[in-house]
């Protein structure tokens, strides 16, 4: 019976998102993954004036049977460099997806909240400690790294020849590209330290 409410509500919310202004502005989008409304694919445009601008971020949204009394399970499928999102798994640290969830929230408000999170990170409540540390210690390095990730994974503009070159140096040594990128990003693009970490 709870499943019934969940499916019925997602159906309504789905329509709400499709009709919303944000869709018209291409800021958010949802797509059905299966017919019974238990899994959806979300998309968020990287907010302007952030390193994520111009990128398109794909999310996995799983709707529990107890929805809307419990929050949907959301994670980033697109890799992203952000203090509150795991650079490895895409897991999100956001209070409304945990204990601060309220039954009146919808797919639309969740996606908009995530977009807001992308624009305003909370480094003091991190999901990815390495990213959070970089965010706090070296804002510019963080910005460049996040922008590089956006270009690489989310179809954002601009490359970074220096970063690309360093990644190539590692892949030439037989390291997998994503792994090389994570290591370099974690060590502020210090090739020596990244290499050391990868081969230790």
């Amino acid at each position: 019976m709870a499943n019934n409410i969940a499916a019925q509500r997602i159906q309504r919310e789905f329509k709400e998102v499709i009709k919303s202004d944000e869709v018209a502005k291409c800021a958010i989008r949802v797509e059905l993954v299966n017919d019974n409304y238990t899994e959806l694919k979300g998309e968020i445009a990287g907010p302007p004036d952030t390193p994520y601008e111009g990128g398109n971020f794909v999310l996995e949204i799983k709707v529990p049977e107890t929805y809307p009394f419990n929050p949907p399970k959301v994670r980033f499928i697109t890799k992203i460099w952000h203090p509150n999102i795991s650079s490895v798994t895409g897991a999100i640290c956001l209070d409304i997806l945990r204990d601060q969830w309220a039954a009146a929230m919808t797919l639309r408000t969740v996606l908009l909240s995530l977009q807001a999170l992308m624009a305003a990170a909370e480094p003091d409540d991190p999901q990815d400690a390495v990213v959070a540390k970089q965010y706090k210690d070296d804002q510019e390095m963080f910005r460049l790294t996040a922008k590089h990730w956006t270009a690489k994974y989310a179809g954002g503009p601009g490359g970074n020849p220096d970063f690309e070159m360093k990644i190539r140096r590692l892949t030439d040594m037989g390291v997998e590209e994503d792994q090389a990128r994570v290591a370099l990003s974690s060590y502020n693009w210090d090739l020596e330290r990244a290499t050391e970490q990868l081969f230790s």
Partner: peptide, 17 residues
Amino acid sequence: CLHQWLDTRPTRQVCPV
């Protein structure tokens, strides 16, 4: 609906909106 919401979180009785 409201009853189920209050039932889901007995320790945190807040308005869903």
